[in-house]
Structure formats: C-alpha cells, structure tokens
C-alpha cells in the first residue's frame, strides 16, 4: 500500500513539470509560434523558484517568482519572434542557451557555486520513502494545486473565451484574424508570455521537489513536454493526459533503476534491465514520431505554426 502511494506520488511529481510545460506549449503553439524554448522556460522557472524560496522561505512566493521569470523570458522570446519576426526555432535555441548559461552565471554570482544552489529552507526532503510523508510533501507544492486549475482554465479559455478564440485564430489563419481587427502581434505576445509563465511553474515544481536548484536540471523535460503537446494534438486536455503518461513512464523508470527485480520477467527474457529502462525512456519520443507520421491517428498542427 505504502509502495503504491509512493509510486503514485512519484508519478504526480514527475508528471507535474512536464504537464505544466506542455500546457504552456499549447498556449504558444496554438498562437502559431513553435516553442522549442519550453526547455529554457522550465530551467528559468526552476532557478527563479530557488532564489525566491531561499530569500523568503515560502513555496508560494517561489512559484510566483518562477512564473515571473518565465514570463520575462517569454516576453524576450515574443519580442524576437513576434515583433522582430526572428525564426522561432532559432530564437528558441537561443532562449534555451540563455537559460542554461544565465542560470549558471547567476548561480555563481549569487551562491558561489557552479552546480547547485544551497538547500531550500522548506524542511528536509523525506526522500519520499514513506507513503504518507510523500503525499504530504506533494500537497505542500503550489504547482499541485495550480496545475489542475490552470489546465481547466486553459481548456475553457481556449475553447470559449474571446482571448482563447483569438489565440486560435492567430495560429490557424493570422491574416483572417488581422482582417477582423485582431492585433495578431499583441495576441501572440500575450499567449507566449502566458505560456512561458505556466511552463516556468513546472520548473518551480522541480526545484521545490528536489529542495535545491541544480544546473541543467530541466534535463530535457521541455522536449518531452513538446512531445506531449503533439501527442495531445495541441489541446490542453490531450497535452496533460500525455504528460501524465510520460510522468508515469519516468516514475516507472526511476523505480526500475532503484530495483532491478521490478522489471517484468517476460521482458528480462529478451532484454537486460538497463535496456528495458532505456526502452521506457525512449517511448515518449518513439510514440511522438509515430503520431506525427500519422500512425496514431492524424496529428494536425495549427496551420500557421512556424
């Protein structure tokens, strides 16, 4: 029982960063701007959360700071891509590099370390070894409460609100939107900043969970989130469902790494435990490839996605 609780809490804490990053990705891609930059948003959010938590000792302030830093980075990305019309892929590469290098510079300047921040003053991590403690720790994370709220709000907003419909219009047919008097630049900028803030909250979850910031700690979650966005066909619900699936895979991988005896017997006949874990890690990428190849139903991106 306790083992199951631990596993479930691991699934949730692995899924949250990816789900929030994917939700952020849905907002910006639905507006018609390809968002490689998710990786950078997550990393920047993780760092912002660490700085704020170290300064104030509050997880909620940390979450807000993460969103603010993410929004700032999103604004920079929007300025480059929307206002200055820079290629979104190239600008995304730059934002990722900026986040990776910028957080390392700030780490050195603020905490005189090349690799990690001091431990956050939020109580020692229990290591999530006891079921109830793992749950209590999870419940103290702002991201846990904000993620469903943001997911629901995004779902409703994209489908029904004026702003959401405008975002979709800008992603599907910007010139039609423009002819109806919508400022495509403004709507896209708003969607990008919003998406970046949400994605950065995913980074905050990483830091709050690990109780410290570690350089490069986003570790490819932004790209996994992009996979979730595509597999979820650019909808908030789909993206979150797939992010949870990816989170479950990653929790499974962690569990298997700790205990080889958990690898299914049938798999062991063919593969070594390490190979089985690699297969589990590769699944999200492989599934996404199949999805965009049209092998898992049609995945149609927003028409104006560049």
């Amino acid at each position: 029982m306790s083992g199951l609780l631990v596993f479930l809490s691991q699934v949730v804490s692995a899924a949250l960063p990816v789900a929030l990053a994917a939700l952020g990705g849905v907002w910006s891609e639905r507006a018609g701007v390809a968002t490689i930059a998710l990786e950078g948003y997550v990393l920047a959010g993780a760092f912002g959360a660490a700085v704020a938590a170290l300064a104030t000792g509050s997880a909620w302030v940390a979450a807000m700071a993460a969103m603010a830093l993410g929004a700032l980075l999103g604004w920079l990305f929007a300025t480059a891509t929307v206002r200055l019309r820079a290629n979104a892929i190239v600008a995304g590469v730059a934002v990722n590099l900026l986040a990776a290098a910028g957080t390392r510079v700030a780490l050195k300047v603020l905490y005189d370390s090349a690799s990690n921040s001091p431990p956050l003053p939020l109580g020692a991590s229990s290591g999530a070894s006891v079921g109830i403690a793992a749950l209590r720790e999870l419940a103290a994370s702002p991201a846990l409460w904000m993620a469903p709220l943001l997911g629901l709000a995004s779902h409703v907003a994209l489908a029904r609100s004026v702003f959401g419909l405008r975002v979709t219009a800008c992603g599907e047919n910007p010139s039609a939107a423009r002819s109806l008097g919508v400022s495509v630049e403004r709507v896209r900028t708003q969607a990008l900043v919003l998406g970046a803030a949400i994605a950065a909250l995913g980074g905050a979850q990483l830091t709050l969970h690990q109780r410290e910031f570690v350089a490069y700690m986003s570790g490819g979650r932004g790209f996994l989130a992009l996979a979730a966005v595509i597999l979820g066909r650019w909808t908030p619900r789909g993206a979150i469902v797939w992010a949870v699936a990816i989170g479950a895979l990653s929790a499974l991988e962690t569990t298997l790494a700790g205990d080889d005896t958990m690898v299914p017997r049938a798999a062991l006949a063919l593969l070594s435990p390490a190979a089985f874990r690699a297969l589990v890690q590769a699944l999200p990428f492989g599934l996404t490839l199949l999805a965009v190849m049209g092998r898992l139903g049609r995945a149609r991106p927003p028409a104006a996605l560049s």
Partner: peptide, 24 residues
C-alpha cells in the same frame, strides 16, 4: 575571474540578434 558561462550568454545574445536582423 567570471563564470565561463558569461560567454555562453553572449552566444545566446548573438543568436537572437542575428536571427532578428536576418528576418528584417
């Protein structure tokens, strides 16, 4: 004297600036 990543930050700035200039 300063973190070597300062130069990587500069690289990021180069990419953003050049991408913007090229587009325009």
């Amino acid at each position: 004297r300063v973190p070597s990543d300062v130069l990587s930050v500069a690289q990021a700035a180069v990419i953003l600036a050049v991408a913007a200039v090229r587009a325009n």
